[in-house]
Design a protein around this nucleic acid. Structure first.
Length: 578
DNA sequence: CCGGGTACCT
DNA sequence: AGGTACC
C-alpha cells in the first residue's frame, strides 16, 4: 500500500543538513546557499523520482484542540468557577483541571486524595456523566462545519479540518492584499526579523503553500473566534500541511493560542519534541519496542534505517514510522459520520455468579438503548465483552463474542428508538448465551468488567416497515441472509464514496456472500445460497452505480423479493452517497 | 489508568 | 472473529 518508505542514508544526511540550516538560521539562506529552497522535508524522496513536480504541500490542515475541555465546559456552565481551581473527577482521579488548579500541580490523572492535599480548596466536579461534554462537543462541531465540510472528530475536544478547498476558493476569488502579508498567531519556528512573515514563508517553500498556510492561519483564527463568541470556549489551533504536523504544532503555544508551521520545518520541529512518544501514532507499546532497538528520540528514529526497524516492527510499520519521523503524513482528514458502534462498559469489583451478571447486563441494555435512542438507527449486531480477573496483566485482555440481533427488537416512538415489547428479555437471552460461551458456569469465575455494544446500524427509513423488518418477518433462513447481505452492502457502498475502489468493493461482496452462505447453510442446505447472494450483490452493486444495468438476470426465483427490495431501497438512494 | 470509540493485524 | 494499540 505504502508507496515509498525507503529513505536512503544519503537522503537522511541531506535531510539533517537541511534541518540544521533551518533551525540555526531560518531565513539567512538566500543567495549563496545551494539548498533547494522549494524542496520539502518529506518530499526529498518523491522529488528525486519526479524532479520538479509541483504539489509539495497541497493541503491546509487545521487542528483544533479545546483548552482543558471538561473543566472549561464547567466554567462556562457556572462562571463563578472561573477564578477557582477546578478539577473534574472520574472514579479516583482528576481527569482534567483548569489552569488555576494546575498551578497547584494538579494535572491529568492525579489521584483525588493527592489533589486534595495539593489544594484543599479545589472544586471537584463529578464528571462521570459526560453528556454535557458531548452536547457541547456537538455545538463545537456545528460551528466547524460552517468553515469546512471536512471535519474529523478525535474524541470530544479535538478536531481536524481540511480547509484546502475553502482556502483555494478564497485565493481564486482574491483576498484583501494585507491578509497575505501577516500570519495570525504564532509561527514555528519563531521568525527573527529581517524580512516579512510572507517573505519568510515564501522563502521556506515555493510550492504555493506559503499563501495557503497564511490564509489557513486566518481561518483558524476565525474558527476560534467563532467558538469563543458563540460558546464562550477557548481553544488552540495548529495549522500545517498535514494532520500529524498540524496537531503537534498546535500544542507549541498553549492556552487560547494558535501556531502555524513554517513549511519545510517538519522534521526539525518533530526532532525538537524529543521522545518518540510525542508522535501521534506512537503509543506505549510501539515506544517500548523502539526502545529495545535503541530508539528513544525522534532524532534516533530519523537516523535509524528502515531495515533495522523492520526486524522488530515489520516493513510496513517501520516504513510508516520513518515517514512520520520526518513529518511525512498523507493520511486524509476523514469526515466523521455517525458512529459505527455504540457501547458501554462497567468495571466492577467482582462478579462470580450468573445472576449478578444478568442484572448488570439488563441495566446495560437499558442504558445502551437510551444512548442510541436519538440516533434512531437500528443496530443488528451486539457484542458482549468481559474481563476475567487476572492479577498479572494490568490492562485490557478482554474477551468478546458477538451475534446478530433482530431489528424487530426495536421500534420507533416519536422519532426515537425504543425497545419493542419483550425485547429486553430476548436481547438479554442472547447476551447471556454469549456470556456463557466465554465463562464456564460450572467452574468458579471472577469477572471484573462487563461490556455491551451495538453495531452494524441500519439507516432509519421512512415508513413503518424497514426492509429488514419486512424480510425478517418471513423468518426464512435464506431471506434472512439476504437481509444481512443488504446491510453489509449498504455499509460498503457508503464507504465506497470515500476511498474504496470498485474492485475491492466487489471482492468484499464476494467475501460477504461466501461467509453469509456458510452461516445460513450450516444445517440442512439443499439449495446453495451463494448464487443468490451473488445475484443480490450484483443488484446492490448496480444500485450503487458500480455495475451497468445491462448485466441483468431477472430469471431468479427471488425476483419478487429483489423487486421489493428495490422498491424499499429507494430511501437508500436519498443518502448522499454519490 | 477510566472509558468509549476507531483502525489494523492475524 | 477476536485481539491489540491508540486517542
Amino acid at each position: 500500500m505504502t508507496k515509498h518508505f525507503p529513505v536512503s542514508l544519503k537522503q537522511q544526511q541531506r535531510q539533517k543538513d537541511l534541518d540544521r540550516s533551518i533551525s540555526s538560521h531560518p531565513f539567512q539562506r538566500s543567495g549563496s546557499q545551494t539548498l533547494p529552497q522549494t524542496m520539502d522535508d518529506e518530499e526529498l524522496v518523491a522529488a528525486q523520482e519526479l524532479p520538479q513536480q509541483q504539489p509539495h504541500h497541497p493541503r491546509v490542515i487545521i487542528h483544533i484542540d479545546m483548552d482543558y475541555y471538561y473543566a472549561q465546559v464547567e466554567e462556562v456552565l457556572d462562571p463563578s468557577l472561573k477564578d477557582k481551581p477546578v478539577g473534574i473527577k472520574q472514579r479516583f482521579h482528576v481527569v482534567t483541571s483548569n489552569y488555576v488548579a494546575r498551578e497547584f500541580g494538579i494535572k491529568k490523572m492525579t489521584l483525588i486524595t493527592e489533589a486534595r492535599k495539593l489544594c484543599p480548596e479545589l472544586v471537584l466536579v463529578d464528571g462521570e456523566d459526560i453528556s454535557k461534554y458531548k452536547q457541547m462537543s456537538a455545538r463545537i462541531n456545528e460551528i466547524m462545519h460552517k468553515f469546512s465540510g471536512n471535519v474529523e472528530k478525535l474524541g470530544l475536544d479535538e478536531n481536524y479540518l481540511d480547509v484546502t478547498k475553502e482556502i483555494s476558493e478564497q485565493l481564486e476569488q482574491g483576498v484583501e492584499g494585507g491578509l497575505l502579508e501577516r500570519v495570525e498567531g504564532y509561527v514555528y519556528p519563531p521568525l527573527e526579523g529581517g524580512c516579512s512573515q510572507r517573505e519568510a514563508f515564501r522563502r521556506a517553500c515555493g510550492c504555493g503553500c506559503d499563501r495557503r498556510l497564511i490564509l489557513g492561519s486566518h481561518m483558524a483564527k476565525e474558527i476560534r473566534d467563532c467558538i469563543a463568541r458563540e460558546l464562550g470556549l477557548k481553544c488552540c489551533a495548529g495549522v500545517a500541511h498535514n494532520k500529524l504536523l498540524a496537531k503537534l504544532v498546535g500544542s507549541v503555544n498553549k492556552q487560547n493560542k494558535q501556531t502555524v508551521l513554517l513549511p519545510n520545518c517538519g522534521s526539525s520541529f518533530l526532532a525538537s519534541l524529543g521522545s518518540v512518544k510525542a508522535l501521534t501514532g506512537i503509543g506505549e507499546k510501539t515506544a517500548e519496542i523502539l526502545e529495545e532497538v535503541g530508539v528513544k528520540t525522534v532524532r534516533d528514529l530519523q537516523e535509524t534505517s528502515v531495515e533495522k526497524l523492520a526486524k522488530r516492527l515489520g516493513l510496513e510499520q517501520a516504513g510508516r514510522l520513518k515517514e512520520i519521523a520526518f513529518g511525512k503524513d498523507d493520511a486524509p482528514v476523514k469526515a466523521t459520520g455517525k458512529p459505527k458502534s455504540v457501547g458501554l462498559e462497567d468495571s466492577c469489583p467482582a462478579i462470580s455468579i450468573r445472576a449478578d451478571a444478568e442484572d448488570k447486563f439488563r441495566h446495560l441494555i437499558v442504558r445502551l438503548v437510551k444512548n442510541i435512542a436519538e440516533d434512531g438507527r437500528i443496530p443488528i449486531a451486539i457484542k458482549v465483552t468481559i474481563r476475567k480477573h487476572d492479577s498479572v496483566r494490568r490492562t485490557s485482555h478482554r474477551e468478546c463474542k458477538q451475534d446478530k440481533i433482530m431489528p424487530s427488537f426495536f421500534r420507533h416512538k416519536d422519532g426515537k428508538l425504543v425497545l419493542a415489547d419483550g425485547a429486553q428479555d430476548k436481547i438479554l437471552a442472547i447476551v447471556m448465551k454469549l456470556f456463557e460461551r466465554m465463562v464456564d458456569l460450572q467452574q468458579p469465575f471472577n469477572i471484573t468488567l462487563l461490556g455491551l455494544s451495538f453495531f452494524k446500524f441500519q439507516e432509519r427509513r421512512m415508513g413503518t416497515k424497514s426492509i429488514a423488518n419486512f424480510l425478517i418477518k418471513k423468518s426464512d433462513i435464506e431471506v434472512q441472509s439476504i437481509t444481512n447481505l443488504s446491510n453489509e452492502s449498504i455499509t460498503l457502498s457508503d464507504s465506497f464514496t470515500s476511498n474504496k475502489s470498485s474492485l475491492s468493493m466487489s471482492t468484499a461482496m464476494d467475501c460477504d456472500s461466501a461467509s453469509l452462505a456458510s452461516l445460513s447453510g450450516s444445517e440442512s442446505d439443499a439449495e446453495p445460497s451463494p448464487k443468490k447472494c451473488r445475484r443480490l450483490a450484483t443488484f446492490l452493486a448496480r444500485k450503487s452505480g458500480l455495475l451497468s444495468a445491462n448485466e441483468d438476470d431477472s430469471s431468479s426465483p427471488s425476483k419478487l423479493r429483489v423487486a421489493d427490495l428495490r422498491l424499499n431501497s429507494k430511501e437508500y438512494d436519498q443518502e448522499p452517497c454519490k
